[in-house]
Design a protein around this nucleic acid. Structure first.
Length: 411
DNA sequence: GGTACTCACCTTAGCTGC
DNA sequence: GACCGCAGCTAAGGTGAG
């Protein structure tokens, strides 16, 4: 989807069309989630700090994000995809891979199917999308970027909408591109590659695989070398199961005491546990993430014997890790994540069942499932941990509704 | 001086058991 | 008993994506 969050917002704020519009980053510690092409003309882009964005484009309209709405629209887009093929691998709310090899006889060529999808998305949802058609996922992704509109200082240049990399044309398309166009080349890898004199994908392909392996490590080096020759055999994976579930939050002001952090921990654990129960998983490993005022970030993990799916259990497991951290210098972000999953229906041994900690966890699980039921009936803020109630006692604060940084300006 | 959130995957190091 | 090599696991940190 093209500038997805902004495009969804513009459907209900049509008067903003043609203006630089930004979603997210309404607080001073946030970042931009999406920028309209008009905003991109001024150099704005997603993940840019909001303070920088305001400096570069003071007249841009900043809108708070509405993640729930974007998820709804994303589901509608997904339904259109479903009408074409069941082989869909969602990449994010606004991107997906579709394997249409089974639909070619019925619906036409890849390019024809791409135009059909684009037309349907426009007719049904009034949203623009760009489609890449290629023999593999990685080329399709890059082709979709080539199909998008581009923002230049002098104006917005419409994209082709559909871009095909036909069999036999892979290297002609790929090799002239800058190496950072490759999926998996971020700032750190780019710097290492530049030290090797690599500027384009062609330069990368010319290197011996062993050189890349020694510069980037075995897995990454081999992977990028294959990509540079347009080799990508990864299939479209329809049902990818999550391997971790986590929440983290940047505070509008730094926290300096264990008591404050403990309250935040309970709130975050409550969110993580709720999602785990909704997905029917139990976890054994819990990771605490702490970002200090100077942006230095550490993580501490613990693996417990008995699997857990309650906020109570998560807090009990992670508390000792938090205690061992000195919040004196100021903590700007706290995060908790769960991993090492097993199914909720997994049988426990008799010994495990008799252990007091397991009995305790099961009692809490029953209690928290009741809370889930109340929330599903009366809303997510109807009930929650007492420590998550705001100091004025009026409002229950669950995990941040603002996905792209704290709402409140830092003081 | 500014840097969100969520998730996946990789590397490295240290520990343990054989 | 001390040591070595190896495999497997865990913890911590880094990187990248959208």
């Amino acid at each position: 989807m093209d500038a997805f969050y902004v495009s969804v917002e513009l459907r209900r704020r049509p008067e903003l069309r043609g203006q630089p519009v930004v979603v997210g980053g309404t607080g001073s510690r946030g970042v931009i989630a999406a920028a309209s092409y008009e905003a991109r003309r001024f150099g704005l882009h997603s993940a840019m700090p909001s303070t920088q964005a305001r400096r570069m484009c003071p007249h841009a309209v900043f809108l708070p994000g509405d993640h729930e709405l974007y998820a709804q629209v994303s589901a509608q887009v997904h339904e259109i995809f479903q009408s074409v093929t069941p082989l869909i691998e969602p990449l994010s709310l606004d991107e997906a891979f579709l394997d249409v090899s089974g639909a070619l006889r019925l619906l036409g060529t890849g390019v024809e199917i791409a135009h059909h999808v684009r037309d349907q998305v426009w007719e049904q949802l009034a949203l623009q999308c760009s489609v890449g058609v290629a023999p593999n996922k990685f080329l399709a992704k890059i082709a979709s970027v080539a199909a998008k509109p581009t923002a230049t200082p002098s104006g917005v240049v419409p994209g082709a909408g559909v871009w095909e990399v036909a069999p036999g044309e892979e290297l002609a398309f790929l090799h002239p591109l800058p190496v950072k166009a490759l999926w998996g080349v971020g700032p750190a890898t780019l710097e290492r590659l530049q030290r090797l004199g690599v500027r384009t994908v062609r330069d990368l392909a010319a290197l011996d695989e062993s050189v890349l392996v020694s510069a980037l490590g075995a897995a990454h080096g081999r992977h990028l070398h294959r990509l540079s020759w347009a080799i990508d055999e990864r299939p479209v994976e329809v049902d990818r199961e999550a391997k971790s579930i986590g929440h983290e939050e940047t505070f509008s002001t730094d926290r300096h005491t264990h008591e404050e952090l403990q309250r935040e921990l309970v709130r975050l654990a409550d969110g993580v546990a709720g999602r785990m129960r909704a997905q029917g998983v139990l976890a054994r490993t819990f990771t605490l993430k702490v970002r200090f005022a100077g942006f230095h970030t550490i993580s501490r993990a613990i693996t417990v014997d008995g699997p857990i799916a309650t906020a109570h259990g998560i807090v009990k497991a992670v508390e000792p890790l938090l205690e061992a951290i000195d919040p004196g210098p100021g903590v700007r972000l706290l995060g908790v994540s769960a991993s090492n999953f097993g199914e909720a229906a997994e049988q426990l041994s008799l010994d495990q069942l008799l252990a007091p900690a397991v009995a305790d966890e099961q009692e809490w699980q029953a209690a928290e499932e009741t809370i889930d039921a109340i929330r599903s009936r009366f809303g997510s803020t109807a009930i929650g941990p007492a420590s998550a109630v705001r100091a004025d006692g009026l409002k229950l604060v669950r995990r941040g509704a603002q996905q792209w940084g704290p709402d409140q300006p830092a003081t």
